[in-house]
Amino acid sequence: MTTTATGALLRRDGLARRRDPLYAVSLAFLGLVVLVAAFAPLLAPYPPDAIDFTAIWGSPSPAHLLGTDQLGRDLFSRLLLGTRESLIGPLALLAGATVIGVAIGLVAAWNGGWVDVLLARITDVMFAFPGLLFVVLVIAVFGKGPWTAVVALALAYAPVIAKFTRSIALSELARPYVDAYRVQGASAVHIAVRRVLPNMTPALLGYLVVLFGEGLMSLATLSYLGFGAQPPSSEWGLMVQEGQDGIVLGHFAPTLVPGLAIAAVVVAVNIVGVRLSERLGARA
């Protein structure tokens, strides 16, 4: 649904007509990143975990475009391969959080009553409690690893998405077409899931895109702290952490390159998310 909605959006608005170069560049960049993730093994000149003790902390050269790290691994190859884990993590966390959050938010908006009160309490607690702390707590209980981090962050994001979903669902449910479906005899589930939810997708989409950027940052942070991806993974947050020993030795690239990659993707994602919200919101 997401891709067709975006496709339709591009067709209808026509990027050229709107002249929004920042949006176009961001979208193109993200498209490139996705392509890189898809074809990383073909593009990478070396295996990402190929250790070469003769080339430790190597400077950029024709053989190693971005240089090498503390184990002599090719930074360029690790960056390309790292795209996969760095993107799939936030994607999975967002998918999980969206399914849970949207379901709870819709039910709360539709039913009101105790479901609504319970949701409000849970979100209050989650907002009062630092997200990262909650995640570290979950990891402390269930053990560290990339998937524990994803699941923990999904649990932390779900109430946020639920709250957002609830607010847009409330305004959507107030529209008379919902009554029209009731009069037609459609069931509550049919109306909520088949009719109301698709009408909310534009508003949700922009928000979720921005959250994706946040999720990427959070996961990278967890990996940096050692709670997420584990060696020999080339997840970007972990690469930043592993490379930082090089800074004192004057080798900035192993930290800087994955750090910049994270920053660039997050900035692009935010621009796309905000513009999407504006464009889709304007039409609704």
């Binding site: 529209r175 008379p176 077409y177 009554d179 029209a180 479906y181 009069v183 005899g185 009408n199 609704a284």
Partner: peptide
């Protein structure tokens, strides 16, 4: 529920909001 819906149908006041956009 459907049989009951077939008995009575309604046209709403707001021509802008009563159709699924």
């Amino acid at each position: 529920r459907l049989a009951r819906a077939r008995q009575a149908q309604m046209v709403f006041q707001d021509p802008y909001g009563s159709l699924d956009r």
